[in-house]
């Protein structure tokens, strides 16, 4: 029986002055404290009684979390506290990382995206995270401030299971960084929900493609699948088909079939596993066809 609190349970709000202080607090109150950004998942889980931490540590505004910068030589850095609407409206993001902007705009509602953050979306490690595919396809790397200093966590190895990630107690993600993407490239995020917009994804297919002389086919396609496995993942077999075989309607269909074979969806209240499997195939095929039309011309 799902019977959440009418409001938030009793909690203490902690606003540290520095990353060091925040990290130290989290370590000192291990199991009792949790960092939060927009709170859009945190508050819901606390009302549900699913998370029971006593302290919520607000890391918005700490060093580096509140800036978004683009360097034409190095790439894009998005502070962890930057809400999704700021990301998708940022001219450098729109120009150079349009797939990320598009993925942001599929999350929930406009007003929720004024609080929800990309880093929060990643740290929740939801199998359904809408922005994770774009972040993986663009080669995102997290900057983590932890007890042992600052380190980099590539997304490729960050997710450990539904709701589980590579962070340790006291770790605070301050930003996500992306290298300069291939120019030109074409990306597409196909999200299928029960409603046309605003739902969680039943299936999320992210595709990014660009010309690549190193690939036998002359193109590299990246395919990231969400909501169809414990964590979002790169569909490598599909990618390989399109790297090695000439890109045609047939090989795209073959890659889509390979994506379908690679997933391990579950039956849940949102969808059956069977429907998810077919949707992976159909949406991957659609997304690949669309980006192929753009990238080949």
């Amino acid at each position: 029986m799902h019977n959440p609190h009418p409001g938030l349970p009793e909690l203490e709000y902690v606003k540290p002055a520095s990353l060091e202080e925040a990290s130290a607090f989290l370590v000192a109150h291990k199991g009792e404290a949790r960092p939060f950004l927009g709170g859009t998942d945190t508050f819901v889980r606390m009302r549900d009684g699913f998370w029971k931490e006593k302290y919520l540590v607000d890391i918005k505004g700490l060093d580096g979390t509140n800036v978004i910068t683009f360097d034409p030589a190095k790439g894009l850095t998005i502070g962890s506290a930057i809400p999704m609407n700021k990301v998708s409206a940022h001219p450098d993001v729109k120009k150079n990382y349009s797939l990320l902007a598009a993925a942001c705009d599929t999350v929930a509602s406009y007003q929720l995206r004024n609080r929800a953050t990309i880093v929060g979306n990643i740290c929740n490690a939801s199998p359904a995270g809408d922005t994770i595919g774009a972040c993986m396809a663009y080669g995102g790397v997290l900057t983590v401030f932890g007890a042992g200093g600052v380190r980099q966590e590539p997304l490729a190895t960050f997710f450990k299971g539904p709701g589980k990630n590579a962070l340790q107690t006291g770790d605070i993600v301050t930003a996500i960084t992306f290298p300069i993407p291939p120019k030109p490239h074409s990306g597409r995020y196909m999200k299928l929900g029960r409603n046309k917009m605003s739902d969680l994804s039943i299936v999320g297919v992210t595709v990014l493609a660009y010309k690549d002389a190193a690939a036998k086919s002359g193109y590299t396609f990246k395919v990231v699948l969400a909501s169809v496995a414990p964590v979002p993942f790169m569909a490598e077999a599909a990618q390989q088909i399109l790297a090695e075989e000439p890109v045609t309607e047939e090989s795209i269909g073959k890659a889509a079939e390979a994506a379908m074979q690679a997933v391990k969806p579950i039956d849940d209240v949102r969808s059956s596993a069977r429907y998810r499997s077919y949707m992976v195939r159909n949406l991957t095929r659609q997304a690949l066809s669309e980006v192929w039309q753009q990238v080949k011309s």
Binding site: M1, H2, R194, N195, K196, M197, S198, L200, V269, R270
Partner: peptide
């Protein structure tokens, strides 16, 4: 199109807007 209380042994599986979807502006 959207609505159904998912009842399993008398327990509703989707008692929230997250999983009991109703039509939005886009639908």
């Amino acid at each position: 199109i959207f609505e159904e209380m998912r009842l399993v042994e008398g327990v509703m599986q989707n008692p929230s807007f997250v999983d009991y979807r109703i039509a939005t502006t886009m639908d």
